[in-house]
Amino acid sequence: MTAGVRVVLADDQAAVRAGLTLILASAPEIEVVGEAGDGEEAVRLCRDLRPDVAVLDVRMPRLDGISATREIVADGLADVLVLTTFDLDEYVFAALRAGAAGFLLKDTDAAGLVAAVRTVARGEGIIAPAVTRRLITAFARTAPAAPAAARSAVAALTPRERDVLACLGAGLSNQQIAQRLAMAESTTKTHVSRILAKLELRSRVQAAILAQELGLTAPQ
């Protein structure tokens, strides 16, 4: 369990914000420190409050969730969890490219939302389980080929790091990667952090997309 998770919520519908706040308030270690009705306000709150996680709707007035994600992540203000109505919304693709740690569907149940916020706060990231592999594959199919610099950086990874990267591309969680590669989950987390640093990526989702673009196959 992640202790002391501070959250900023952003959705243009007050009723939705109220519902999300009620759900997250049910977890004693999660505190909603700010609510925003649009992307500009969300960025401002993240800059002022420095939460651990920003939960953003995709479609918002003044500044949409994609642009807000890009600003929040670029400035290191918080990790971003995007909420969307559609499981293959093209706006979500752009949000992931902007550096979102992951996304959930708005019909996710209360337990799923709380678990997702905890997961993002741990730095692991999450994609709605029902569409994980489908989303990554679809995104990779529409993305341009990985640049030569990225290919060179991947080539410089250790064999174990390449295995972990391939597992990310298959949509596996840290726990699943640890089981697949027969190593401790803490070791998996270390490998993921090193991979992101070496490849100069913002999130494990971006690493998963790169693995798909490169056609890496996870060990069985």
Rank of each mutant, 00 (worst) to 15 (best):
T119E: 13
I72S: 00
V117W: 06
E29P: 02
D52I: 12
G125M: 07
V58C: 04
D79E: 14
D79L: 12
L88P: 02
G112V: 03
V82Q: 01
G125L: 05
P51A: 05
L104D: 03
A128Q: 15
D79N: 13
L81I: 08
V33D: 02
D75C: 10
M60L: 09
A149Q: 15
F139E: 14
A143R: 15
L113T: 07
R134E: 12
T108K: 11
V58A: 01
G76N: 06
I72C: 02
S67C: 05
R59C: 04
A143H: 13
D52L: 08
P144E: 14
A78C: 05
T84M: 09
I126A: 08
P144Q: 14
S152L: 15
A121L: 09
A116W: 05
V80P: 01
E124D: 15
D87A: 05
R118F: 10
A115L: 08
M60F: 01
L104R: 01
D64W: 00
L96C: 13
L63T: 01
A25V: 10
S152W: 11
A111Q: 11
A94M: 08
V73E: 06
A146D: 11
V154M: 06
A155Y: 06
V131H: 08
A138E: 14
A68M: 00
R47F: 07
R122D: 15
G123S: 10
P129E: 13
R62Q: 04
V32H: 04
A25N: 13
P144L: 07
E29K: 08
A145L: 14
T137K: 14
I30Y: 03
L88E: 11
A101I: 11
L20E: 09
